[in-house]
Amino acid sequence: MNYLSKLHQTLDSGKFAVTAEIGPPKHSSAEGIMHHCDMLKNHVDATNITDCQTAIVRMSSIAAGVHIKKGGIEPIIQMTCRDRNRIAMQSDLMGAYSLGMRNVLCLAGDHQRFGNHPGSKNVYDIDSMQLIYLLRQMRDEKKFFSGEEIKEHQPEFYIGAVANPFADPFEFRVDRLEKKVEAGAQFIQTQCIFDMERFERFMELVRERGIDQRVHILAGVTPLKSWRAAQYIQTGVAGMMVPDSLIERLKNAEDPKKEGVNICVEDIKHIKENIKGVHGVHIMAIAWEEVVPEIVERTGLFPRPV
């Protein structure tokens, strides 16, 4: 088997994978990225590099990916459909491949209303579903999005996508996941799981349809620093669900940060041991990357990469 990336190899050989997330800086220095690399490189199999998440201008995910690769971690380049048309996307994808990027995660992207340029124009020339299968078309059929032949050196990415079990309509989320797999997605990272019961129901439907046999699902987890953060996510972020009991637990904790890490560790252990069909975790420690090593160590997933 010719693996497209190390993450591909890890997942296809049946190992439980650990990915994390690095948000590029709002400036032109890679210093912070390198710092995060040093911190995470023995604790993850790969890291996502966000693509101007929440529509806030940051260093390019591909450029940051190059730094991260130099820093010793395999990057997963995020690409949203918000900012580029199909011409720019293909150009960037080929450039990214030439720079050693091997994993791409396809997303719609947050609406620009949430960012620091709310007056900007969104593109959405193609959507995330279409991006997935066009990436596959480039790789497997050696064709540009237009159908024109790529004569040589076509980019061969390991294709990732996202799924959100906490968005509506619930049942259709499983259909849409299957649609993404049909389109060519090989690994899936889920939205942050706080409502474990709902995630378990989602996975039940996934298993009933055998989707977990066709794609590697990585469960998204996020350690929370405070009950206020939990409450904000519960009420202020579309497509996320936080049970009241979690807010209460953080509220009553003597050391909320420590409790947040405890909860995250418990969740990972639970997912790994009890939820069939999950092949890894994706740890999104937003602006709290330094806590990832502890979480990985306490869940018995250290050292990395496997």
């Binding site: 719609a108 969104n122 995330s128 579903m129 939205q191 579309a238």
Partner: peptide, 21 residues
């Protein structure tokens, strides 16, 4: 659809409402 998505809905859809509002 605020993202003109042809294979929706995106992950921002909840309780029948769009993530923008």
């Amino acid at each position: 659809c605020s993202k003109s998505i042809l294979n929706g809905p995106c992950g921002g859809s909840q309780n029948g409402k769009c993530e923008i509002d």
